[in-house]
Amino acid sequence: MTALLQAERLEAFYGASQILHGIDLTIARGEQIALIGRNGMGKTTLLRTLMGLVPSCRGQRLLHGDNIAGAQPDAIARRGVALVPEGRGVFGALTVVENLIMAARPGRDGRATWTLPRIFELFPRLAERRGHGGHQLSGGEQQMLTIGRALMTNPELLLIDEATEGLAPLVAQEIWRTLGVIRHEGVATLVVDKDFRSLSAIADRMVLLAKGAIVFDGAPAKLAEQPELLERHLGV
């Protein structure tokens, strides 16, 4: 598969504290990668660094083969990367439709696969609540809205932080189903979540972080063959 995004020797800092230590990661077009690890191991920082939200970093980031070191988040977004952040970031004073429409734009190649009707087809609950304010939605509905808003930018790569954290089991199942649909459409995803079993079922690759470094990068089946690694770094 063709590389969409590459990180080489990536390091990131918050003040004097170094969080990422020499990350080498390649994401292929249409690939679904699970990013796993205990809390505080650098998963969110890695997503934010790839999105250009951590200004203090070193190493190389290539998007479509072009160096994006120093690029602002809006420029990276226009080049086809979208972030679903932890905490969701829904605009409470805007309706569901307004939250979605504000992000709408064609993809980098002019395509518009993800439209308002398509998002409502993907998330019928949002269609039912299209006139509700963001603050009136449940946590699960807000997560659907945040994913829908990211898709409205017609991205080639979707970065999702804590995909199902705090969601009821039935809602979480809907999010996992949605990720399958997104993958079928050819959108690459890098997904952070604590549900190891569900991630293993959907991911092409598992990337395990420990203290800001990658300690495993490979197929879910290969990781399952290393129970000592799972116990040491995930407690499963």
Rank of each mutant, 00 (worst) to 15 (best):
Ile33Met: 07
Arg197Lys: 14
Val187Pro: 05
Glu228Lys: 14
Thr49Cys: 12
Ala104Glu: 04
Glu8Phe: 03
Ile76Glu: 03
Ala172Ile: 01
Leu53Tyr: 06
Ile36Pro: 06
Val171Gln: 08
Leu4Asp: 10
Glu98Phe: 03
Gly89Glu: 01
Leu230Lys: 08
Ser200Gly: 02
Asp217Gln: 13
Arg125Pro: 00
Trp176Leu: 14
Ala16Met: 11
Ala104Lys: 12
Ser56Glu: 08
Met51Gly: 02
Gly212Leu: 01
Arg183Gly: 03
Asp204Ala: 06
Ile27Trp: 02
Gly166Ile: 09
Gly133Ser: 06
Leu137Cys: 10
Ala188Thr: 00
Gln6Leu: 11
Ile33Thr: 05
Val54Leu: 06
Leu25Cys: 05
Ile160Cys: 15
Ser138Pro: 12
Leu234Tyr: 12
Ala104Arg: 05
Asp217Asn: 14
Met41Arg: 11
Val191Cys: 11
Thr178Gly: 12
Leu167Pro: 10
Ile202Met: 15
Gly59Val: 08
Asp24Ile: 05
Ile33Ser: 04
Ser17Cys: 06
Ala28Ser: 11
Gln6Tyr: 00
Ile33Asn: 00
Leu230Phe: 01
Pro169Phe: 03
Ala210Leu: 07
Ile175Thr: 03
Gly30His: 09
Arg130Thr: 09
Ala203Val: 11
Leu223Pro: 07
Glu141Ser: 13
Arg78Thr: 05
Met1Pro: 14
Asp193Gly: 07
Glu121Asp: 15
Arg108Met: 07
Gly110His: 07
Pro55Ala: 12
Thr113Arg: 15
Trp114Met: 10
Ala112Ser: 14
Thr26Pro: 00
Gln143Ile: 10
Gln6Asn: 13
Gly15Leu: 00
Leu63Ala: 04
Pro169Glu: 04
Val187Leu: 13
Leu5Val: 09
Arg118Val: 07
Ile147Glu: 06
